[in-house]
Nucleic acid binder design. Structure first.
Length: 554
RNA sequence: GGGUCCGUGGCCUAGUUUGGAUAAGGCACCGUCCUUCUAAGUCGGUGAUCGUGGGUUCGAAUCCCACCGGGCCCGCCA
């Protein structure tokens, strides 16, 4: 099976045989809609002194000879190459026939560990943190689809000041009451208010932290159990949007032990001392403290230990972190790669914060929209929309559709935005289900499914077939799926898949509205149903990568 | 102040890594199409000094410099 890059490669070889000065960068997949493969001749023209007409006449005969090329058009300094329609769709259909999937030839034995979410278990997960989970889960799915052996991991902070405050807040204000999430959260918020008004957290939390760090096992366990209660509710929230994390690793496990010992042993010759505290000098002139003067470890040391731990079972580590961790990530990378001779590949995905029109999100101050709230309100909204549109459906069915639309919409609206961008969350946007949205994508699949149920799959005719414009566009877009899947996997960008899905659905909608099945002759029906089949398969595949739940009817 | 990321029609987003054809979608607004396979859809229209100013180039949203605006970071917190 030849994929688009294979054809591209053959065109490159052919062009370079007569025009070695041209670079791969000037022979590319045409994404601007003129043709299939475009050759830009400006740079080569300048290098060789030959004009466009001379280059075109030199290159054209060679390209024309390639068996998969239909025709060529040269104009304005561009040589546009059009592929035969059959080579765009036959490989997809053959792959589906043979393996039930397209593409079927991606595989990589590397083990990848995607760490995401890892939010402090001090309260319900809010929409800002959910961005981490949605990006992380999508990246894991994309890499897994690409062929890597992927596991996901959540690093649970049960050893810091925040969780100690959670524990202490409950003890102070709610002792004897039910130790549930809402009481824990209320205690957490109250103790932070208290510390602000009384001035100084050291007075209130200091003694508890001291006990914790002096290795008071009973306290450590008690803090961990409080964190576990909140963590359980976070897991439940995540599962509502289809996110399940493979492993949970507790930070308290790295307070002591061999992983932490390895860090300090490995860094021994680089460690510097300041009043008994241990630190490293970073290239940017800053100090990275690993150990306090009282001998207890600091977060960077434990995070380094955690990375060594992760590396035991992975060849490639990916951390999804908020942009506030950029400097931390840079420091961790430097220490691991330069000082500890780390062999694994390490990548960070940083994402911008989510804020509200009313300002930034804060769990402590209670200025948050939780993921649960978002799911509930979105589901209520989609339910009323479906109930209005589909008066024929049973209540159970309405509920299923509403939930799928809601969850898909939430995930898509976050996954489609490049992680670098800051986002301002607005209900008006979250509750809009038209245009570039998940329902737009889902709706196309439902339509295609209706066609499939009414007319079947058809079979592609042998030989070269003339396709009308919208049939060809759909065939080409479907065929290009592996190209975008590769791009998304290499660049760790779920938004690439989202953009692809939108372009795929636009191609399908054009096809759907101009290429009828009903009333057409058998040959036309057969090829359109084949295209419909290929579309259904590819959209199903791609949509699952970003957590969109496609429905057979909606 | 230093570092870093972002700035594209009224609003949201793609395109920037690798400079090239009319800056591509969506929301909102105006108009079109349901007795033909699902109108959460289709078609058309209004609307862009690509933050600003320089520079490099045959050619700049894209590269370089300066500036402006915003986010984030600059703890023996995590």
């Amino acid at each position: 099976m030849l994929l688009f890059p294979d054809y591209l490669g053959k065109v490159r070889v052919a062009v370079k045989s007569v025009l070695p000065q041209i670079t791969d960068n000037d022979i590319i997949v045409d994404e601007s809609g003129f043709s299939d493969i475009v050759i830009r001749t400006f740079a080569a023209s300048k290098k060789t002194g030959a004009d466009f007409a001379a280059i075109a006449s030199q290159v054209q005969p060679l390209i024309s000879k390639l068996e998969f090329v239909d025709r060529i058009e040269a104009r304005n300094g561009y040589i546009n190459v059009f592929l035969k329609s059959s080579v765009l769709i036959v490989p997809v259909l053959e792959s589906l026939e043979r393996t039930g999937t397209y593409p079927d030839n991606f595989q990589d034995p590397e083990r990848v560990c995607v760490e995401h979410t890892s939010t402090n278990p001090t309260g319900p997960i809010h929409i800002g943190r959910a961005r981490n989970s949605i990006i992380g889960d999508s990246v894991a799915r994309i890499l897994s689809r690409y062929g890597y052996r992927v596991t996901t991991q959540y690093y649970v902070n049960d050893a810091g000041k925040q969780v100690i405050a959670l524990h202490e807040g409950f003890r102070r204000y709610f002792e004897g009451k039910d130790r549930n999430v809402s009481n824990l959260l209320a205690g957490y918020q109250k103790i932070y208010q208290e510390m602000e008004s009384l001035g100084g957290e050291s007075k209130i939390l200091g003694p508890v932290i001291k006990r914790y760090e002096s290795n008071d096992e009973e306290l450590i366990e008690s803090v961990k159990s409080a964190a576990a209660i909140v963590l359980k509710s976070i897991k439940e929230s995540l599962e509502r949007v289809g996110i399940r994390i493979d492993d949970f690793v507790w930070e308290s496990g790295f307070l002591h032990g061999t992983d932490l010992d390895h860090v300090f042993e490995g860094l021994e010759e680089h460690l510097k001392d300041e009043n008994g505290a241990k630190y490293l000098d970073l290239p940017n002139g800053r100090k990275l403290f690993l150990q306090r003067s009282d001998g207890t470890s600091l977060y960077p040391a434990r995070d380094l230990a955690y990375h060594l731990f992760k590396a035991l079972n992975a060849d490639w580590l990916i951390d999804v972190l908020g942009e506030d961790h950029k400097d931390h990530g840079t420091a961790i990378r430097y220490v691991l790669m330069t000082l500890l001779d780390f062999k694994q590949r390490l990548d960070f995905i940083f994402y911008g914060f989510v804020s509200l029109d009313s300002g930034k999100l804060s769990t402590r101050k209670g200025n948050i929209i939780t993921l649960d709230e978002l799911v509930e309100r979105t589901t209520a909204e989609t339910h009323s929309i479906v109930a209005e549109k589909r008066k024929d459906l049973e209540p159970e069915r309405l509920k299923t559709i509403a939930e799928a639309v809601a969850v898909s919409s939430i995930r898509f609206s976050i996954a489609k935005v490049n992680a670098d961008k800051h986002m301002i969350f607005r209900w008006s946007e979250a509750l809009n289900f038209e245009g570039d949205s998940a329902p737009f994508i889902m709706y196309a699949y439902s339509r295609a499914t209706t066609l499939f149920k009414d007319y079947g799959t058809g079979s592609w005719p042998a030989g070269e077939v003339d396709l009308v414009q919208h049939e060809r566009k759909l065939a080409r877009t479907v065929f290009l799926y592996p190209y975008y899947l590769t791009d998304a996997a290499k660049s760790l960008r779920p938004d690439v898949i989202c953009s692809y899905l939108l372009s795929l659905v636009k191609a399908y909608n054009d096809f759907y509205s101009t290429c009828r099945i009903k009333g057409e002759n058998q040959e036309v029906q057969a090829r359109r149903l084949s295209l419909n089949r290929a579309f259904r398969s590819v959209i199903f595949d791609a949509a699952s990568l970003v957590g969109i739940r496609l429905l057979e009817e909606m």
